[in-house]
Write a protein that binds this DNA or RNA. Structure first.
Lengths: 228, 228
DNA sequence: CTCATGTCGATACACTGTATTGCTTCGCTG
DNA sequence: CAGCGAAGCAATACAGTGTATCGACATGAG
């Protein structure tokens, strides 16, 4: 369980605080992924023994929580447009940009309840944008539905990015990239619709794909918020 | 060393193939989560040295992939209703039930491209259900949007289940469960909409919440598939 | 100056995924 | 049947992980 409160700082001004620890962890994760984040490496980057960290953080999971909340600060929008739909669109777009900047965020998105101050502020702002447009339950459902879409879509997008990077090939060629296995599968004729999709489908870029799906979901939300 | 414990010549207890390995890994993950799956423990459960596994599996990630594809078999529907919407609904429902049976699936959902035979079959069946209802790009967008929602919604649901289990408290009390911290945050007045949602919101059960959000998304998809 | 306290670095432990090594046993050849 | 090559498999080894514990040291109080 995460405690977001900063512990009382040591008597003397320490060269170390949560923020520096989290920043170091994020830097490591940004280039190397989540698996590159080890307490030893974080500590090393701060010229400190590994055990020092436990004065500020009680477990590695908590460090991950702190990292997530830290990047949620990048998601939090500055202004608040009065158009709720525009507001949700911007929120989704900012989440996407942040996830592209910090790919490891995709591994954590939706993984555990996000209760840090920045995450709460983000939730507050989206809730506020929808406040009064419908009864509370409907508003909650709207927020959760949109957020579920965002989580799922971004996880898939990052998964694809990584797969392409790993094989060095474009999505157009993924069936070859993933070895003869998938291609053989498709050629068995057991998956005609899938084969057609792979061979005949145009691959739209990830951004418009994300935006289009989002628009659909927002259409659905709009229909529920403002019943005809 | 007596004469009597002589023969048992084969004593070869294990045919040991991928299926047995994957089954053992799934059993471990089912009770203990993904982190309870270690190659040593899997091997131990099969009365085998850890290195034996590398004859059938080349990395732990691959084992995870195999586990995912194995449970995708539980998602694959038997019959194919001719109503595409019913088909998608059933697919989502089966995915949810499977994820509730194997909570670790939520940790893997959307994490990497799913190219196993069962996953391909599932994709094939949903694609086939929508085939011909619109141009290929629209159909793809529909499938991906629905699947993104499913991934995100199930991840959140499992995250909540775990949080409740960890604290032993119902969602109604989560603000207390997560310590005075969140409550204090809410009471600062900086999150009025959120506070209202927490205090005044009725907590609908997860199943109808999932189904309702899904219905909205399906509404949106329907509007795109069958333009007025 | 002495003593208590509490911070911090080092050490330690149990465990992880995986590479390597060396044995053992089987089937084939001469 | 003797011997040998090959192949499968167990054990060992290594570098790394998260975290508990312990001992030294510095700093404050009396």
């Amino acid at each position: 369980m995460t405690v977001w409160d900063r512990p009382e700082p040591p008597t003397r001004p320490a060269p170390l605080d949560r923020e520096r620890i989290v920043a170091a962890a994020i830097a490591l994760a940004d280039e190397g992924g989540l698996e590159a984040v080890s307490l030893r490496k974080v500590a090393a980057q701060l010229d400190v023994g590994p055990m020092r960290l436990y004065g500020y953080i009680s477990t590695k999971e908590e460090l991950f929580d702190l990292m997530v909340d830290e990047v949620y600060a990048e998601i939090l929008p500055e202004g608040r447009p009065d158009d709720w739909r525009e507001m949700l669109r911007i929120h989704a777009e900012r989440t996407r940009r942040t996830t592209l900047r910090h790919e490891w965020l995709a591994d954590l998105l939706g993984g555990r309840p996000t209760l840090g101050p920045n995450a709460l502020a983000v939730t507050e702002s989206t809730l506020a944008a929808l406040d009064g447009l419908a009864d509370l339950d409907t508003v909650m459902r709207a927020v959760e539905t949109v957020s579920a879409y965002i989580t799922g879509a971004l996880r898939r997008e990052i998964a694809n990015v990584r797969a392409e990077r790993a094989t060095g090939l474009s999505k157009r060629d993924w069936q070859r990239a993933y070895g003869p296995h998938v291609k053989r599968m498709l050629d068995t004729g057991r998956f005609p619709a899938l084969a057609k999709a792979v061979y005949d489908g145009t691959d739209v870029d990830a951004e418009t794909s994300f935006a289009t799906g989002l628009d659909w979901v927002l259409d659905a939300v709009a229909a529920k918020l403002t019943p005809a």
